[in-house]
């Protein structure tokens, strides 16, 4: 009886369904891995002259190929383990080294983008001319597939001697300023008329209204926008690494992996990128919690 209650409670929550679905995805993954890798494995047996094999041996072999069409999860996990824990972080073969390259571009671009987005929003809120003339363009700028410009920015800046982290960061900046600018315009305008009127009775100047009311009212919007912005600046940094000819970074790992058919390497870079994105977003979430608590929000 008690157990049944526990069960139903678990089923009501999120943890168990999520775990079951992840489990199903893993099972599906292994089935697909066996299926997709079968043709190659048959070829291997034919060349080696192996004519008889047991099912378990066959499945084991398909899941442990060198360059599988779809690597199995444990291969990817092993590759990640080998390239993070077992390699020194400064080695070029270490995934941590590549992750750091991408992360530094992401963070630099995100920081510039946030500052730019906030300043644009301040201008737009305080100047009608800026609001009317720039807002449509800021929105239109996002319908442009900006990542298409990425290779050009990289190559052109390289040609005039600017290379390394800055060009990639600029792409991240372009991608991340938009959610911040739009969110902050909304946030700076979120104080209600009654609050603005109160500031007016205090004879507060525009800058005082901004620093004591608008800025704090915009905080929830800031963090929501920052969560979106940081995950797309990571995308920007990764794509920015593609055209540099696969030198360093997670994007370069993807590209060199696809050149040389190293699927395990591609998947491990992908998983690393996913983990990085999740970490960054949840870090913003932690900062949000601390700041809102400091501001007196009780949850």
């Amino acid at each position: 009886m008690y157990e049944r209650m526990m069960n139903s409670k678990l089923m009501q929550g999120k943890a168990l369904p999520v775990l079951i679905i992840i489990g199903l995805i893993l099972v599906f993954w292994y089935v697909m891995a066996v299926k997709l890798n079968t043709p190659w494995q048959l070829g291997v047996y034919e060349r080696a002259g192996v004519t008889e094999w047991t099912n378990s041996q066959f499945i084991n072999d398909t899941l442990n190929q060198d360059r599988p069409v779809l690597p199995s999860v444990h291969q990817v996990a092993e590759e990640i383990w080998n390239t993070t824990v077992l390699k020194s972080p400064t080695s070029r073969r270490s995934l941590i080294y590549h992750t750091w390259i991408t992360l530094s571009a992401t963070l630099l671009g995100f920081t510039i983008g946030t500052i730019l987005g906030i300043s644009l929003a301040i201008g737009i809120v305080h100047s009608r001319a800026m609001d009317k003339s720039m807002m449509p363009w800021i929105i239109a700028s996002q319908t442009i597939p900006i990542l298409a410009i990425a290779p050009m920015i990289i190559v052109v800046l390289n040609a005039i001697g600017i290379s390394g982290v800055l060009p990639k960061a600029l792409i991240s900046t372009y991608l991340s300023f938009f959610p911040i600018a739009v969110g902050m315009v909304k946030g700076f305008r979120s104080p209600e008329q009654i609050q603005l009127d109160l500031m007016h009775t205090y004879a507060a100047s525009k800058s005082q209204v901004f620093s004591t009311l608008r800025w704090f009212a915009a905080m929830p919007y800031l963090f929501t926008s920052m969560k979106i912005a940081i995950s797309i600046s990571l995308v920007g940094a990764i794509v920015g690494e593609l055209p540099t000819g696969a030198v360093a970074g997670l994007g370069a790992r993807l590209l060199s992996g696809s050149y040389y058919g190293q699927t395990v390497q591609i998947w491990s870079a992908l998983f690393m990128a996913a983990a990085l994105a999740a970490t960054l977003v949840s870090l913003v979430g932690v900062v949000e919690k601390i700041v809102t608590r400091k501001m007196g929000v009780r949850t």
């Binding site: 990542l147 969560k227 995950s231 990571l234 995308v235 990764i238 794509v239 997670l250 993807l254 590209l255 992996g257 696809s258 699927t263 591609i266 998947w267 870079a269 992908l270 990128a273 996913a274 994105a277 999740a278 977003v281």
Partner: peptide, 10 residues
Amino acid sequence: ALPIVGVAPI
């Protein structure tokens, strides 16, 4: 929230 473009090479 993940950089899904990364699946492109695959």
